[in-house]
């Protein structure tokens, strides 16, 4: 890809090539250094958390420097012990269940709805699209009680169902809209070609659109992972017993505004809780980046 740019610059530039390429090299280096500096700003908080996680509690708030004067692993050992007799193994497993099901739900349900909005024609389409957008505009706090009553009647309180089932019903309209925008970026000729080959709407969706919207699906997976992992409001409302708690709830459990908090444990476990998200992001960003240009639009 960088070749392309190179070529284009060379052809458009009237200056001698050698002069140009030194300039370009300087430009690239400056860019690189700036990016590196930016990276430090981005990473500072993690460094700070990392350093705090190795400090004893009394040092966390008194020592300003990033390098702990005395290193302790106790926060990790003690933090992993968890809360109310449940260790972080339980909380991780719970988080993975919630996150995994949420990703699956969002990918299936949102892509179906998005396909209908982007490509199919049906009655009340515009109104329904507006309803979809409007459903994102009301703060969850005022929808909470009716939803809670519903889930309570279904006997779903203190299970993962109130957190997961809505994803299979495409309630995250954010992703529907995202996918709609992506599908509308896919040339219609492809649909038409498939239709000529005898594909119906269902086949067009499964064989053309779904594979071609990989970047949007990967984005959905990444965001669902992070947002579900970090979401604490619905989790603390619906999950009551520590055995059902997720990592995020357990992290909140370490802190108490009315008394002494377990800061060291909290930082240590916060660092650990970043690892799955980070690994997931690294693994999936490859798919995101390679996206359409290699999945064979040509």
């Amino acid at each position: 890809m960088s070749n392309t740019i190179n070529q284009s610059n060379v052809t458009s530039s009237s200056k001698p090539t050698s002069n140009y390429s030194t300039k370009k090299k300087i430009f690239e280096s400056v860019k690189f250094i700036l990016l590196l500096l930016g990276a430090i700003v981005m990473l500072y908080p993690v460094m700070w958390m990392l350093s705090s996680s190795f400090k004893t509690v009394d040092k966390i708030f008194t020592e300003v420097g990033l390098w702990p004067s005395e290193i302790t692993f106790n926060n990790y050992l003690q933090g992993w012990e968890g809360i109310s007799g449940f260790t972080f193994s339980t909380f991780y497993l719970n988080s993975f269940i919630v996150v995994g099901l949420s990703i699956l739900g969002n990918i299936i349900a949102c892509s179906m709805a998005a396909y209908a909005f982007a490509r199919l024609d049906f009655t009340f389409k515009k109104i329904l699209f507006a309803v979809m957008l409007a459903s994102m505009m009301v703060p969850i706090h005022v929808l909470l009680i009716p939803q809670y009553i519903l889930f309570n009647n279904l006997n779903w309180i203190n299970t993962y169902l109130p957190l997961v089932v809505p994803k299979f019903l495409a309630t995250d309209a954010f992703f529907i809209f995202l996918m709609v925008q992506f599908i509308r970026g896919i040339p219609r000729e492809l649909d038409n070609a498939a239709r000529v080959d005898g594909c119906g709407p269902v086949q067009i969706f499964t064989r053309i659109i779904f594979p071609l919207m990989t970047p949007a699906l990967v984005t959905t997976a990444i965001f669902t992972f992070i947002w579900t992992w970090n979401d604490f409001f619905s989790q603390f409302i619906y999950l009551s017993n520590p055995e059902k708690w997720t990592v995020t709830l357990a992290l909140r459990g370490f802190l108490d505004t009315m008394g002494e908090s377990m800061w060291g444990d909290m930082f240590a476990m916060s660092i650990l809780s970043l690892i799955p998200i980070f690994v997931f992001f690294i693994a999936f960003q490859k798919l995101l980046i390679e996206g359409i240009s290699t999945t064979g639009i040509k």
Binding site: C110, M112, P201
Partner: peptide
């Protein structure tokens, strides 16, 4: 295609 969303919404 819309049914899950329609139920959910």
């Amino acid at each position: 295609f819309l049914s899950p969303w329609l139920i959910g919404v």
